[in-house]
Design a protein around this nucleic acid. Structure first.
Lengths: 203, 203
DNA sequence: GTCTATAAGTGGATAGAC
DNA sequence: GTCTATCCACTTATAGAC
């Protein structure tokens, strides 16, 4: 049923598996709160292999940060390139990009490591990475989307709230707590079911 | 010059000292990223004493969460009780409360543990505390301040952005990075100098 | 490409002296 | 009220076999 030794798989592919697993675990438990062994178990391999593949826990996390930032930037640029956006004013554009962000969030745990990274300002290496990533997104929204600083601020603020609700696992209270339900509905809007009833596509 | 053994001080007072120190350290490094020894050093006492005083690291952190929530609620209620607020519409009220929040943030590191707690949704005990605290604030803003769910959402979103900029230590880039300067100015507004040039009052 | 074994270090908590 | 000493569990990382 379960094999104690993993199938032999090309390194590049295994690397992606580990990154996926790591994004989930780090996204949920944070950098310091996650052990390399938890990542290994989530990826179905041994702990030393995780370390060997990325050199260190820190490097693995930085990799995650880069990946999350790239996904986000790619997604935002794709949204900006759509024809509908021509017809939108900045207010409408902000909403449109906001929906694109929620879509990305709902698709998996790619962005939560970013949210966790934002708490690591004190760390000499990860902190620098995280600040750079944050400012990159800021500039993208300002220069490529053409939003004013205030509009960018409001967009980012909304994103931070969504991140917080997710890492708080407020979504778990949706059924049982009326206040939570109201807040979640208001924050996620029409995209609510992406986070309260995460659809696992059939394989 | 420095005494290796601390002065003998009443427990209640020592308790406050430890809580202050712990708020700083936990606020900066997060729950898992902080050791009880770091707290002890910040408070100028021995590590076992910290544990003994609060029973465990977890209980100490929960205490911090409660304290931060109380401070925040007290501050918001005080703001709501001021005479000027009568003349404000909801938009103005939101801004007024926002300034009250920044004041509290600028006064010390009382609220950052809250921000760190919001990342601990996965933890069975701390997660519950943090969610409850978050919903408490939500209800206060909705029921006592009379804001609509959307207005509360926007207020909270703004707060989450401020928290993020703080824990990211973006303020450290104020001098050197133009983008960071623009973003910080936009996010903190007139209260900017509370966070970029923290004034330590002379004793 | 992947594992087992393990070294080396760290951290929370307890016991007991003063 | 506060410390020193210390235990034990856990964690990252390395070595080396297969």
């Amino acid at each position: 049923m379960s094999e104690s030794r993993s199938e032999r798989i090309p390194a590049a592919e295994r690397r992606e598996q580990i990154l996926d697993a790591a994004a989930r675990v780090f996204g949920e438990r944070g950098y310091a709160g996650t052990t390399t062994d938890q990542v290994a178990q989530a990826a179905g391999i041994s702990q030393p292999y995780v370390v060997r593949m990325f050199g260190s826990k820190e490097k693995l996390f930085c990799e995650l940060l880069l990946r999350a930032r790239d996904s986000l930037e790619t997604r935002l640029r794709a949204a900006l390139a759509r024809p509908e956006v021509k017809a939108l004013d900045n207010q409408g554009l902000k909403r449109f990009l906001g929906r694109a962000y929620v879509d990305l969030v709902g698709e998996g745990d790619i962005v939560l490591p970013l949210a966790q990274g934002f708490l690591l300002g004190h760390d000499p290496v990860i902190g620098r990475y995280a600040r750079e990533g944050f400012l990159d997104i800021y500039r993208l929204l300002r220069d490529e989307a053409g939003l004013s600083p205030e509009e960018v601020r409001d967009f980012l603020a909304g994103g931070m709230l969504l991140n917080t609700l997710l890492t708080l696992q407020m979504t778990g209270l949706y059924e049982s707590d009326e206040t939570a339900r109201e807040l979640l509905a208001c924050a996620f809007g029409e995209k609510l079911d992406l986070v309260v009833a995460p659809t696992k596509a059939a394989p």
